[in-house]
């Protein structure tokens, strides 16, 4: 029965492309909101197969999986292959919270030489490479909505935004792309 069901990507078909930047929806992925005290980091890192970052704005990436530091006891774990991340954590005995949020967020990929400028239309953080280098990630705001911003390359960012705010975020980025 499952294959009969159509998964409806909320940003399906959206695309904004200019000379300097491309704004496109990211592919579906599995996402985990992971919460754990210091004591649980080692075991959870092992279970997830990557070292959970401990520094603000830090990320860890291994292949198609990544963990983004969001707070001192909070990570957003992403897996492009759709792996059941909560399942991986189930065997960890140290107290923690692993909640599947795969459908809560939508990804928007912003790339190109003007990517930083496009994001600056709505994000008040300093995104210069010296301050927000490749690999940095942070929860922040974009215009009137909250996002998680991850710099995946010198000219590439991944924006994670709640599903119902994704139309706003995409529209703002597309508008900003016209001005970059």
């Amino acid at each position: 029965m499952a294959d009969a069901l159509v998964r409806a990507d909320v940003l399906a078909g959206r695309r904004a492309e200019t000379a300097g930047v491309s704004v496109v929806p990211g592919a579906p992925a599995s996402r985990l909101s992971l919460r754990a005290p210091q004591a649980g980091i080692a075991a959870l890192s092992k279970a997830l197969g990557l070292a959970l970052p401990k520094k603000p704005k830090g990320t860890a990436q291994d292949g198609t999986r990544a963990a983004l530091w969001l707070g001192p006891d909070e990570w957003l774990v992403l897996d492009a292959e759709g792996v059941d991340l909560a399942g991986l954590c189930a065997s960890v005995r140290t107290a923690h919270s692993a909640v599947d949020v795969s459908h809560r967020n939508v990804a928007i990929l912003v790339s190109g030489p003007a990517a930083e400028t496009v994001l600056a239309a709505g994000c008040p953080q300093d995104l210069a490479p010296a301050v927000f280098p490749v690999g940095a990630a942070s929860r922040t705001v974009l215009g009137k909505v909250e996002i998680v911003l991850w710099r995946t390359g010198a000219d590439a960012f991944r924006v994670e935004v709640w599903r119902s705010f994704s139309d706003y975020a995409f529209t703002l980025l597309a508008e900003a792309a016209r001005d970059a």
Binding site: P56, K57, G71, P72, P124, Q125, S138, R139, T140, V141
Partner: peptide, 11 residues
């Protein structure tokens, strides 16, 4: 004090 950084008031 947790992010160890100055951040804009909007956050």
């Amino acid at each position: 004090p947790y992010c160890e950084e100055d951040r804009p008031e909007l956050e």
